[in-house]
Design a protein around this nucleic acid. Structure first.
Length: 83
DNA sequence: GTTGAGCGTT
């Protein structure tokens, strides 16, 4: 089963496709979701990714957490909510 | 804006 990942500080440039592309390097991305303000539609700069396996997810977390991506130091961690 | 959203509920 997949594992969910929190991805923060991505900046306004990030979208669902780029998020998925980024994590696809480490495995199959089941879902990628950018959180936006529901009322304004503006990106909150963070989102979630679900990998098809926990091993892939963990590899992605380890590789990407704290990494400068597109000018932003992204924060990547296992998601805690909405499991 | 370090954790999504539905639905208005346990």
């Amino acid at each position: 089963m997949g594992k969910k990942i929190y991805v923060g500080n991505m900046g306004p440039k990030a979208d669902q496709a780029s998020l998925q592309a980024l994590f696809s390097v480490f495995g199959k991305v089941e879902k990628a979701y950018i959180v936006t303000d529901r009322q304004t539609g503006q990106s909150k700069g963070f989102g979630f990714v679900e990998m098809s396996s926990d091993a892939e997810a963990q590899a992605a977390i380890t590789a990407l957490d704290g990494k400068n991506c597109g000018g932003y130091t992204v924060k990547v961690n296992e998601a805690k909510a909405k499991g």
